[in-house]
Amino acid sequence: MTVTLPTTPATIIEVNAIGKSYGAVNALSGITTKVNAGQVTCVLGDNGAGKSTFIKILAGAHTPSEGQLLIDGVAVTFSSPRAALDMGIATVYQDLAVVPLMPVWRNFFLGSELTRGTGPFRRLDVKEMKRVTVEELANMGIDLRDVDQPIGTLSGGERQCVAIARAVYFGARVLILDEPTAALGVKQSGVVLRYIARARDKGLGVVFITHNPHHAYPVGDRFLLLNRGTSIGDFEKSQITLGELTSLMAGGAELDSLAHELERAERRS
């Protein structure tokens, strides 16, 4: 499944001055960015910056109260996550939407099971589902000989990868990954970042939510920085360095004053 990339990457999602308010509370306002095929758009921000509100809008779980969401250049309003999924926008949430006690292959096809036969004899095509699971995981570089083991026995990084492989298999054009590396150690994070790169190389648009610039910078092509519900910048990789990204992430001036404060405190003691 190789996708030939056009010379100028096609924009799949365009976000135009989008905002969301709950009653009088403004959770998000004036966010503009885009997601291109074969590129990774990183969304960075501290806790409470509005990252989850933003991805919920992209995923169709929330409707924006202002601004426009364009898919392939056409303005859309998602009525449900299912509607977003039907347009090829798949979200891998932090809890991964897996059922720990169920086998890997049942998890892989959950909600979209393959069946054969008709009427009362309509049954799961177990053989085919196992075969596809093994194959798709192998495509992502995961070699699981026993897809019958409960998914809960896999490591965090592997589970993340199964969730990503599942979204790719079910025709995602855009993958939204909600803090996939947040709960992982250094090594496991590396594994997940590699799969993000692999999904990107397959021509998918990836939205990578994180608060770690060191994870974002190596795989990212575009960086959207959020702070308290507003955008503090939407940069292409050529416009920003890792140092600048880190400093902006940490709130720039705020970090400087914090450093200053800590320094003095140290001196005093």
Binding site: Y93, G111, S112
Partner: peptide
């Protein structure tokens, strides 16, 4: 096994 996960994948 996991109600929310099921909902998310369309069960």
């Amino acid at each position: 096994g996991a109600l929310n996960s099921s909902r998310q994948v369309g069960v």
